[in-house]
Simulated assay, not measured.
Amino acid sequence: MIAALTGMGLSAAAGLNAYIPFLLVALIARFSDVITLPQSYAWIESWWAIGIGVLLLLTEVVLDKVPAVDTVNDAVQTFIRPSMGGLVFAATSAAGEVDRSSWMTGHPWVGVVLGVVVSGLVHTGKTAARPVINAGTLGFGAPVASTVEDGASVGLSLVAVFLPVLVVVLLVALAALLLWLWRAARRRRRRRDRRAALV
């Protein structure tokens, strides 16, 4: 159960930013015993994987803060974020020996599918909310929303690894935040459209 919660939290974080949970898992596995990746996933903690992850993270952080470019980036990330969610879920739940779950060990594909689904749902919410936020704030909301998403990804990743029991609470809070941002941006856009119609 704990490994599944860790995988779920990391997958949700990957739906916001694919590279933050990947790098967190890689660095923790490389420099501590908190996460011990199985041999089939040991490449994640290699220097070349960490280096590529850092480069991709820097690119994502910059592109995601530019209005209109963030929408294109989200379209490209539609394939990457769910895949990364599946990878981090599978890698961390492969340490599902912590749970002594013979069923999960015998069916490793379940972790991948769950990771893809969780990450895909979060990514879909982010992708749907962002254009509305951009339109509602005339683009000024893009860097703010992106920074909040990056912070949420870091926080959710850390909680998933160190306090996995809180993952469910944070996922509910994340869903509520995305819904609130989307509704606020829609209200602002409607007001602006009404004002424009009156002129």
Rank of each mutant, 00 (worst) to 15 (best):
A68T: 15
P82W: 12
V110S: 05
P143A: 04
L174A: 14
G115V: 02
L37K: 00
L55R: 09
R192M: 09
T36P: 01
A142W: 08
S153N: 08
A142L: 02
G15S: 09
A68L: 14
W47D: 05
G106W: 03
A128T: 12
S11Y: 00
W47A: 04
P108C: 00
V54N: 07
A135C: 00
P131V: 06
W109H: 06
R195Q: 06
L177S: 12
A90M: 04
R30E: 02
A4P: 01
R130L: 05
F31T: 10
A29Q: 03
H107C: 08
D70Y: 10
G125Q: 12
G15R: 03
T59S: 12
L27Q: 07
T6I: 08
A42D: 14
S102G: 14
A18S: 10
W180F: 15
I20V: 08
A14M: 11
V172A: 15
A18L: 04
D99M: 12
V98D: 11
V72N: 02
V118L: 13
V61S: 02
Y41H: 01
V159T: 15
P21C: 01
R195G: 11
L179D: 07
R30I: 01
T124R: 14
R195A: 09
T59G: 13
L114M: 13
Q77A: 12
D33C: 05
L87I: 06
L177V: 09
V98C: 00
A142H: 04
I35N: 04
V172N: 09
R30N: 04
S101E: 07
I28F: 09
G139S: 04
L171T: 11
V116M: 10
I28H: 06
T36D: 08
E97D: 10
T105L: 07
D74Y: 11
V148L: 14
T78A: 14
V110Y: 03
G141M: 05
R81I: 04
R30P: 00
I80R: 11
T147L: 06
I35Y: 05
I20K: 02
S93Q: 14
G9F: 05
F162I: 12
G53P: 05
V88Y: 08
L23G: 04
A145N: 09
A18N: 04
G96H: 03
P21D: 01
V62Q: 03
L23R: 09
M8G: 13
L16C: 00
V112G: 11
V165Q: 15
I2N: 08
G51Y: 02
A184L: 12
R190W: 08
A68G: 07
L87S: 06
D150N: 15
W48P: 01
F162V: 15
A49S: 13
V132D: 02
F22W: 06
V144P: 02
L178T: 06
P108L: 00
S11L: 03
P38I: 03
P82S: 13
P82D: 13
Y41I: 10
L156A: 06
L24M: 13
L179S: 10
A14F: 14
R192Y: 03
N17Q: 15
I44M: 09
V144M: 10
P38H: 06
S46P: 01
G7H: 10
R192T: 06
A13G: 10
L181S: 11
M1I: 10
S40K: 07
L179Y: 12
T127R: 09
S11G: 12
V159K: 14
H107N: 15
G7K: 09
